[in-house]
Simulated scan of single mutants.
Amino acid sequence: MLNYAVRRIFMACLLALFVSFISYSLIFAAGDPAAAVAGEASTAADAERIRQLYGFDQPILVQYLHWLSGVLRGDLGTSLYFDQPVATLLLGRFAMTAQLGIFALILALVIAVPLGVAAGRWPNSIIDRLALLFAVIGQAMPSFWFALLLIILFSVKLSILPASGTASWQSFIMPTIVLGYFAMPAIMRLTRSGMISALEADYIRTARAMGLSEARVLFDYALRNAALPIISLSSAQFGFLLAGSVVVESVFAIHGAGSLAWESIARGDLPTIQALVLCFSLFYVVLTLLADMLNAMLDPRMRSK
C-alpha cells in the first residue's frame, strides 16, 4: 500500500505541475495580456509600460517560474479589479462554493445510490424504468431552467424559501437541489450497471445459497464491489459541482467561486482568472488522488497496478 501511495502521489505532483503551467499559459492564449490589462483606450506606450511593470516582456518560462515560486509561497498575485490579494479573495469565495458542493454531493449520493441499487436489483421493472426516466430528465434539463422553476414555485408562489442570497440555511436548499440533481444521473446509472454486474457473479449465488438475507447480499456483497467506480465518479462529480457552480451561483446570487469566475471573466481580471483555473484544476487532481487511495484500501488488487 505504501509503494502504491508513493507512486500515486508522485504522479499527482507531476500532473499538478503540468496543470499549473497550462493554467499560467492561458493568459497568453487570448493575445497580449499587457494590452488586456491596459484597456481598450490605452496607447502602445501604455501597453509597453504595463508589459515591463508585470514582466510580460520576459520569456514565458521565466515568467512561469517567477509565478510558480509565488504560488508555492501562497502569493497568487493581486486582483486587478478588486485590488486585493487573490489568495485572500479566493479563500472566502471557495469556502462558500465548497459548502454548497458538499451539500449537493451528499444529496446526490443519498438519492442516486438507493435508486441505482433498486434499479439494478429489479432490472427492466417499473422501478428501473422510473429510475432511468429520473436520470434522463436530470441529464436533459438545463440547470438554470430548473433553478428558475424552483424559484417560481417555492419563492414566488409558495413564499417558503428565499430566492437568493446566503442569509440563512434555507437559502442553500434550492441551490443544493439544483446542483445535486445535476450529479444524480451519472451516479445512479453507474450504481445500476455495477449492481447488475455484481448480482450475476458467482459469489452472489454462493452467498444466497448460504441462506444470507437479501439485504445483506445487496449491501454487504454486491454494493461493496459496485462501490469502487462510484467512489471515483463521485470525486469527479464533486469537481464538476465546484467548477459548474457558475450558473447556479449567478441565478441564486451566491457570492462563491463560481460567481467570482464570472465577474473576473467579464472584467478581464487576469490574475484572478488564472488563480481560479489553477484552483479548480488542482481540485480534480487532489480528488482523483483521494479516490484512488480509497479504492486501493477497499480493493487490494489495485495496489499492484
Rank of each mutant, 00 (worst) to 15 (best):
L242H: 05
D75I: 08
F283M: 08
L65W: 10
A44Q: 10
F18G: 15
R73D: 12
A36Y: 01
I254G: 14
R7P: 04
R121F: 13
V71E: 15
L276I: 11
S20W: 14
I151P: 12
P229Q: 07
G31F: 04
H66V: 13
I60G: 04
E214F: 00
V277G: 07
M188I: 12
R301K: 14
Q170F: 10
S264T: 03
S42M: 10
M174F: 09
G256L: 02
F134E: 04
V156E: 09
S264R: 06
I50E: 09
A118C: 15
W169S: 12
G268L: 11
L260A: 00
W169V: 10
L149S: 12
T88Q: 13
L260Y: 00
A227W: 01
T88Y: 09
G244C: 08
S125H: 11
Q52V: 04
S197W: 09
I126K: 15
F219N: 07
T176C: 00
V62K: 01
T191C: 02
L150Y: 07
A207G: 04
F103L: 11
F28V: 07
L68T: 05
Y24V: 10
I173F: 03
Y221T: 03
A209K: 02
F219G: 00
Q63V: 02
L132E: 15
L294C: 02
G101M: 13
Y203M: 11
L290M: 05
L161R: 11
I126L: 15
L130Q: 14
A29I: 04
A108E: 10
A207D: 01
T88N: 14
L17M: 14
L76M: 15
A243H: 05
I127E: 12
S234N: 01
S42H: 04
V248P: 03
S25P: 10
M293V: 08
R121H: 14
P185H: 13
G77A: 12
R303Y: 03
A108M: 13
A87Q: 14
I151M: 05
I173D: 00
S234I: 01
R129K: 15
L294Q: 03
Q58W: 02
W169E: 13
I265H: 02
S245L: 04
T206R: 09
E40Y: 06
S42W: 03
L298R: 09
N3Q: 10
I273N: 09
S250W: 09
Y221I: 04
V178F: 12
D32N: 05
A167S: 06
H255V: 05
R189G: 00
V6S: 06
R208F: 01
V71Y: 08
S250T: 12
